[in-house]
């Protein structure tokens, strides 16, 4: 199966790979997927006092489409408010990367990762 150009670009030059210290108060961490299913995504967001996502990082265990989906997501959410980021849908990611049906679950996972990171951040703040 040949990959879409954008997938290859994100796979070969992944944006924002890495980790933030997850104990920091302004960091939200989302860890989704399962090793037994062949993909795990860790997405972290850094949020400023205005509720803007000022930075994002990811690490992903998975196929090229999973890595590309998470890389794309870090680009998309940077500079967005939590609400804006939370409204990103898997179909936006899948369409942008032109994922074939068998790979759409990668984009679903990426959407889950955004929500999980936001939720983690909000829970921290509420404490």
């Amino acid at each position: 199966m040949a990959y879409n150009k954008k997938v290859i670009d994100h796979y070969e030059n992944p944006r924002n790979v890495g980790s933030f210290e997850s104990s920091e108060k302004n960091v939200g961490t989302g860890l989704v997927g399962a090793p037994s299913c062949g993909d795990v995504m860790k997405l972290q967001i850094k949020v400023d006092s205005q509720g803007l996502i000022i930075d994002a990082k990811f690490k992903t265990f998975g196929c090229g489409s999973a890595i590309a989906s998470s890389s794309l997501v870090t680009e998309k959410i940077k500079g967005k408010t939590l609400q804006e980021a939370g409204s990103i849908r898997n179909s936006d990611i899948a369409n942008e990367l032109d994922l074939p049906p068998v790979k759409r679950h990668c984009s679903v996972l990426a959407e889950d990762a955004i929500r999980a990171a936001i939720r983690d951040y909000q829970e921290k703040i509420a404490k």
Binding site: V17, S19, L31, P35, M41, K42, K59, T60, F61, I67
Partner: peptide, 16 residues
């Protein structure tokens, strides 16, 4: 592996 959250956890001694 540098990009893998599982590898990161394994290195930190977390049992996946």
């Amino acid at each position: 592996r540098d990009m893998s959250p599982l590898w990161e956890m394994a290195q930190a001694g977390i049992d996946v």
